[in-house]
């Protein structure tokens, strides 16, 4: 039996199923990260002896630029498919993958420097919040890389059999990726600059 509404929109929602699904998932993600931000505010304002360790702002700024760039490359990859140009999708898809790998490499440098300085998740509340939030965000990047790797590799076969559905899949992946970028946009000032 064929799964309905993978390409054409459902009459009641006006959306194809995967798009409705990803927005519901992103709503749950807002609550997940929202709970962590809420915890951070509560811990920080409730502790008069809050210790804020100086973080590596240049490296975090570089990572912000990397993530913003990857958001652009994702929409350019999607635009390529809509223009029926698979080569453009492939080029910008690979670039997105490389940028996300770059983000993880920079993050690993940061974590190593922090471990070398004796800063661990159990050091104090700030470090616990920092590692929990950036770690969870990093896991989201890793998850995105796995999905994108699939679409650039074995999953790309669908472009030949069902190009519309493949284009929709990349749109849905893009929405997830922009959300991960959006979370970082708030994490960066909250954890590094304030």
């Amino acid at each position: 039996m064929e799964i309905p509404y993978t390409v054409e929109p459902r009459p009641d929602t006006g959306l194809y199923n995967a798009k409705l699904g990803i927005w519901l998932f992103l709503a749950s993600e807002v609550m997940l990260f929202g709970a962590l931000f809420s915890t951070y505010i509560l811990l920080r304002t409730g502790n008069p002896n809050w210790v804020q360790h100086p973080m590596d702002v240049p490296l975090a700024t570089l990572n912000t630029m990397i993530l913003i760039s990857s958001s652009v490359t994702v929409v350019l990859a999607w635009a390529g498919l809509r223009l029926n140009n698979f080569a453009q999708f492939r080029k910008f898809g690979i670039l997105t993958f490389l940028l996300s790998a770059g983000f993880m490499v920079v993050k690993s440098f940061e974590y190593s420097a922090e471990f070398s300085a004796g800063l661990f998740p159990w050091t104090d509340n700030y470090m616990a919040v920092y590692f929990t939030m950036t770690g969870l965000h990093g896991l989201h990047i890793l998850g995105g890389m796995v999905v994108l790797g699939y679409f650039l590799g074995p999953g790309a076969k669908m472009w030949k059999s069902n190009p519309k559905q493949f284009t929709n899949r990349i749109e849905v992946f893009g929405l997830y990726w922009h959300f991960v970028d959006l979370v970082w946009i708030f994490l960066f000032p909250s954890l590094y600059l304030l």
Partner: peptide, 17 residues
Amino acid sequence: MTALFFGVLMIVPAGAI
């Protein structure tokens, strides 16, 4: 709806403060 519930999450620390 997400914004509404996110607002509730943010009211928790605001209330505590």
